[in-house]
Design a protein around this nucleic acid. Structure first.
Lengths: 97, 97
DNA sequence: AACAATACTAAGTATTGCTTAGTATCAAAT
DNA sequence: ATTTGATACTAAGCAATACTTAGTATTGTT
């Protein structure tokens, strides 16, 4: 089992309409290395540390847990639920248990 | 921002009523190093690679995304939702959008 | 075809995790 | 109160992995 981060990252970056380098720079990477690093993450060659993954998620408007979610259906739900208000999430949690 | 994995791991391990070493051994680690490694993960000293985190999650009965979730409310929802049937998840997703 | 922009990669260096070899802490038994 | 065993924890060196460098490959545009 290899990390779902690569595919989720690519998908979210494309939705945001950014190049690999652009995204890397926005995350605070050196412009000279941003392209190579981001590509290595997207191709699954290397894995970013958590702090970097969190910044990616914030920049791309998805919950960081989404990047690590191996189940497509749950991944979708994570994105949708994250957009709810706190009270709505509390309500949903109540209803589910 | 440091990784939520440490705290989520401890919490899930304690619910499962396992020692750090016991859990490490179940994940396939060398019994001589299982204790040290698991402790380093739980104290946030080091981060496991994804494959190890996935095995932890499977063994502890939580979705792997839960270990990386930085929002407590969303983390709870992830655990509860993961227990639903596929059809129920599909239904929930429909309703939310 | 030529060019620019974007994506991608090998290999060396820098950084981080894993192993080793312990110490610290806590609970139970004597 | 002390010993014992179980569990938790840690420093430091070694092994493995990520980051940087210096490019090549691909794609789209004129």
């Amino acid at each position: 089992m290899n990390s779902p981060l690569a595919h989720r990252l690519r998908s979210a970056r494309q939705v945001a309409n950014l190049t690999q380098q652009q995204l890397g720079i926005r995350l605070g990477m050196d412009p000279n290395t941003a392209s190579a690093r981001m590509n290595q993450y997207e191709k699954g060659k290397h894995a970013p540390d958590y702090q970097t993954a969190k910044r990616m998620a914030d920049e791309l408007g998805v919950p960081v847990a989404y990047l690590y979610c191996d189940d497509d259906q749950l991944a979708e739900l994570i994105c949708v639920i994250a957009k709810l208000k706190e009270s709505e999430k509390a309500e949903l949690l109540e209803k589910l248990r």
